[in-house]
Amino acid sequence: MAAWFEGRLAGFDLETTGVDVETDRIVTACVVQCGGGTPTQSFTWLADPGIDIPEEAAKVHGITTERARAEGRPAAEVVEQLVAALAESVLAGLPVVAMNASFDLTILDREARRHGVQPLVDIVGDDLLVVDPRVLDKQIDPYRRGGRKLEDLCRHYEVALDGAHSADADAIAACRVAWRIATKDPRIGGAPISALHLWQVSWARKQAESLREYFARTPGKESWADGVRTEWPFIPAQRAGGEAP
């Protein structure tokens, strides 16, 4: 049986209005199917998020409020199509590769609920298997100095990144980094994808707990500790009563 990274992968990436998973919105999105010996297929969206895009976010991904309003599709339409594309990939047995998956998948979940779209997790359930290059990299090389953003990982693993902070470029690059890590580390490359997913749940929790402890003991960053979440690959939505479903 072929290793998971030798088969088809579904890369997923979002560019958003900000970094708050509960309130920020999708601006651009990409789902790319690549690998497995068949041609790459890339699906991209530009949304009108329905709110202003802050200048600092526009500087990152290059999409201004004016452009999103003029060229973007209605947010609800984009979210519905995006969930459908991901669900199709998941139900076809493809792992979803997403850099910092808990951010992108949580944003998508909240957008779906905001716009009355059936959330991805409600469609695919336990069939959702995720590969997060950020979690894998921290696990296999925890003490390496330097940044851990996608562009940092691309430099370290010698992966081309053309057009950083565009959703399509980032989605493909994340798949390439995951492939590099899998070929470098036999435990990761040789694991059944279902086992690798469960390992990442544990690894991500421990990594977040370590970050929380670092913030708590670092002068000036103590208040950041409370904002660190340990759930992966997404943060469950809260019910009205405050309990996770």
Results as ranks from 00 to 15, higher is better:
Ala3Pro: 00
Glu6Val: 00
Arg8Asn: 02
Leu9Cys: 03
Leu9Ser: 01
Leu9Ala: 01
Ala10Pro: 04
Gly11Leu: 11
Gly11Gln: 09
Gly11Trp: 05
Asp13Lys: 15
Leu14Val: 14
Leu14Gln: 07
Thr17Phe: 10
Val19Glu: 09
Asp20Asn: 15
Asp20Pro: 11
Glu22Leu: 12
Glu22Ile: 00
Glu22Ala: 12
Thr23Asn: 14
Arg25Tyr: 05
Val27Leu: 12
Val31Pro: 03
Gln33Ala: 09
Gly35Met: 02
Thr38Trp: 06
Thr40Lys: 11
Ser42Tyr: 02
Thr44Glu: 14
Leu46Glu: 13
Leu46Met: 13
Asp48Gln: 09
Pro49Thr: 11
Pro49Glu: 03
Ile51Thr: 15
Ile51Arg: 09
Ile53Ser: 10
Glu55Ser: 12
Glu56His: 15
Glu56Pro: 06
Thr64Tyr: 08
Glu66Ser: 15
Ala68Pro: 10
Arg69Gln: 15
Ala70Glu: 14
Arg73Ser: 14
Ala76Glu: 13
Gln81Ser: 14
Leu82Gly: 06
Glu88Asn: 07
Leu91Ala: 09
Ala98Val: 14
Ser102Asn: 14
Phe103Gly: 03
Asp104Arg: 12
Thr106Val: 12
Leu108Arg: 05
Glu111Ile: 10
Arg114Val: 06
Arg114Phe: 04
Val117Glu: 01
Val121Ser: 06
Ile123Ala: 02
Gly125Val: 02
Gly125Cys: 08
Asp127Lys: 15
Asp127Gln: 15
Arg134Gln: 12
Asp137Glu: 15
Lys138Asn: 14
Gln139Tyr: 14
Ile140Trp: 12
Pro142Trp: 10
Pro142Phe: 13
Arg145Trp: 07
Gly146Asp: 06
Lys149Glu: 08
Asp152Val: 08
Asp152Trp: 08
Leu153Val: 01
Cys154Arg: 05
Arg155Tyr: 07
His156Ile: 01
Gly163Ser: 10
His165Val: 08
His165Ala: 07
Ala167Gly: 14
Asp168Cys: 11
Asp168Lys: 07
Ala169Trp: 03
Ala171Tyr: 05
Ala173Thr: 03
Ala174Ser: 13
Ala174Arg: 01
Arg176Tyr: 00
Thr183Leu: 13
Pro186Trp: 12
Pro186Met: 10
Ile188Lys: 03
Gly189Cys: 08
Ala191Leu: 10
Ala191Lys: 04
Gln200Phe: 03
Trp203Leu: 13
Arg205Asn: 06
Lys206Pro: 00
Lys206Trp: 03
Lys206Val: 01
Gln207Phe: 08
Glu209Ile: 03
Arg212Tyr: 03
Phe215Glu: 05
Ala216Val: 00
Thr218Ala: 10
Pro219Gly: 05
Gly220Leu: 05
Gly220Lys: 04
Lys221Phe: 12
Glu222Asp: 10
Gly227Cys: 04
Val228Thr: 13
Arg229Lys: 14
Trp232Ala: 03
Phe234Asn: 03
Ile235Asn: 05
Ile235Met: 13
Ile235Gln: 09
Ile235Asp: 07
Pro236Lys: 08
Gln238Pro: 00
Arg239Thr: 11
Arg239Glu: 10
Gly242Pro: 12
Glu243Tyr: 11
Pro245Gln: 04
Pro245Arg: 11
